[in-house]
Design a protein around this nucleic acid. Structure first.
Lengths: 342, 342
DNA sequence: CGATGTGATGACAACGCTATCATCATGCGT
DNA sequence: ACGCATGATGATAGCGTTGTCATCACATCG
């Protein structure tokens, strides 16, 4: 006689496959097939089962399904922030790529903190995602190892300045910084200023900054002044830092910004302070945000394509379950937007 | 003799609890306890197990864990869009509320489509979330029933103009529309124009619009002209629709916008076209976005608090696992921002 | 007319954990 | 020395699905 263990309480709560099967007088297998739209089921049976499904308000349990099939149909997404508009834009691209598939994204935020990123990646990996999309290619050693050893597809997106674990998608930020310098030097500017925000956390902003310096150095130039704010990017900081920098170094001919947010703030400062742009001082941003295009004076900047990056990242992981030999680099490029501020 | 079924391939892939237990020469129970930080384990044993965990690179499988414990520790989030900045702002609040807890949000986008919302809610419910946060309180009958019958905590956020399933958090958009009208009438404006975007999809914009009409009616007034663009909100549309409306009805004294994006576009149009604001025409927005504050001319608008809405929504569902009797309405209010454009 | 598909359904063991109960030393009071 | 908490660990039955094979009723064909 088998020993019977009895639970104190019945842990089962929800309507399950079994309930539907009992009600429709078929096996659980049949209900399962119908719920997954597999064929091989008679129309009459399907109808009978669906009646039971509707009557009971049955909703399949994907947690159980994922465990049984060893496939969660989840895609992990890791981004540093939601307050910088570029990341929601990437998310839109990811969303567009996932639309119509049966995959679901799970998003986590790192606040530009590599240690938090490590925690977040571990927690996401625990959900057995089929792929992981992560912003940037600078991680802790442990994060890299976890991602690598997971065996799933990994896309590092935004910048392509470093070696990939699997695939990187984006543009060269060092290249963009250098391109800014060359472009502005070619237009005759010689006295440069820089306005940015806390350089330590945002590696891409730092890469652009370094590309800028390198580009200036090629022409035998360097920055005359810079003003960097702490914390996250904002239009307001662009405004205050521009006031600060231009007050200290009114001789600069052009100010290069870490990004468009800051540059827009700079333009607003100039408009308010009666500083003519680009005659008295020229302004140059980065990102190519929509807002820059519709300003009274269109912003001169470099456009990257965040939506495309997100969509291509998804396309890449959906295209194959295995990693390409030796990694892959997908350059989505960038484009100088002439504008009217430089 | 027991019949032995053999799988064609070994479906097991990952390092599991069993592997760790074997290596550390303890039972699976003990490893499980340690991974969940339960006490009752000797320090020596814990150390031995952790060595094995690290050696094997073991990552717990939350799908299996959730199934066994009947608790996914997931919070479903449903929003209409990522391209309207207010939703990422709510997400930030949600993220802040969830930080430090062991819950993880899962986000889905509806594109302002109630049928898609239904699909998305069903798919999210399949993940057995412990709570669901959903933008708006207008849903299909089926969506409402699914949410209601799920038994989990449901927060409908953004507007509080309708009856809750469980809890609603936000502000009255009809009230905000009416407040705009009263405020502007009190300031002496009589000839009103309206600029917005496709009213059918964004119910909140429509509520504000109707509140505006109601407020104007109180003063015996009505809209002299309106210009509504199709599709999603953008600064650019604000600009083009303003040009359209002001061209057709140059006599309007004030233009009320569906939101700040559009209003900023309107201001840019006026700046470019040399229309003095607010002398020739006044502009009034809605949302209280950061950008409005730092414009050369601060935007007059109504501020809502999206971050707060997100954070409070999370606090509410974390505070209790059961729904309050008869529902609950949490008003986060709104505030008229005087600005310089009206 | 029996062999042989073929299409529809059922049975049941995984999947990797957690909850629950069982077990087994120890220490302690009496 | 004995009974009994107490603390640490083990054994095992689920959790709600899916994958795989088995079964069974018919139709088809040479």
């Amino acid at each position: 006689m088998a020993k019977q263990k009895q639970r104190l309480v019945n842990r089962r709560a929800q309507v399950s496959l079994r309930d539907v099967a009992l009600r429709a007088e078929v096996s659980e297998s049949t209900v399962s097939r119908i719920m997954r739209n597999q064929d091989l089921v008679t129309e009459a049976t399907r109808e009978r089962v669906m009646v039971a499904v509707r009557a009971l308000g049955y909703v399949p349990n994907r947690i159980a399904g994922s465990l049984a099939s060893l496939d969660s149909r989840l895609v992990g997404v890791v981004i540093p922030s939601l307050s910088n508009i570029v990341f929601p834009e990437v998310l839109q691209g990811i969303n567009a790529g996932l639309a119509g598939t049966d995959r679901q994204s799970v998003i986590s935020i790192t606040d530009y903190d590599l240690d938090l990123e490590e925690v977040v990646v571990r927690n996401l990996l625990a959900w057995q995602p089929g792929a992981m999309l992560i912003a940037g290619s600078i991680h802790t050693e442990t994060t890299r190892r976890m991602l690598d050893q997971s065996g799933i597809r990994i896309v590092e997106f935004m910048e392509i300045d470093n070696a990939p674990i699997d695939v990187v998608i984006g543009m060269s930020h060092v290249g963009a910084g250098r391109a800014s310098a060359r472009h502005l030097v070619a237009r005759g500017y010689r006295r440069f200023g820089y306005v940015g925000y806390s350089g330590t956390a945002d590696f891409r902003a730092r890469m652009r900054y370094e590309g800028l310096l390198a580009g200036l150095a090629e022409a035998g130039l360097s920055l005359e002044a810079e003003s960097v704010a702490a914390g996250q990017t904002s239009v307001e900081k662009g405004r205050t830092q521009t006031a600060d920098l231009y007050g200290r170094a009114p001789g600069v001919e052009v100010i290069v910004y870490s990004n468009d947010d800051m540059a827009v703030g700079g333009l607003f400062h100039c408009m308010s302070a009666g500083i003519s742009v680009p005659q008295s001082v020229a302004l140059f941003g980065f990102n190519g945000l929509d807002i820059g295009r519709v300003l009274p004076q269109p912003l001169s900047t470099i456009r990257s394509n965040r939506f495309l990056i997100g969509r291509k990242a998804v396309e890449e992981v959906l295209s194959s379950a295995s990693r390409p030999e030796g990694g892959r680099v997908i350059d989505t490029g960038f484009e100088i937007v002439e504008g009217a501020t430089a």
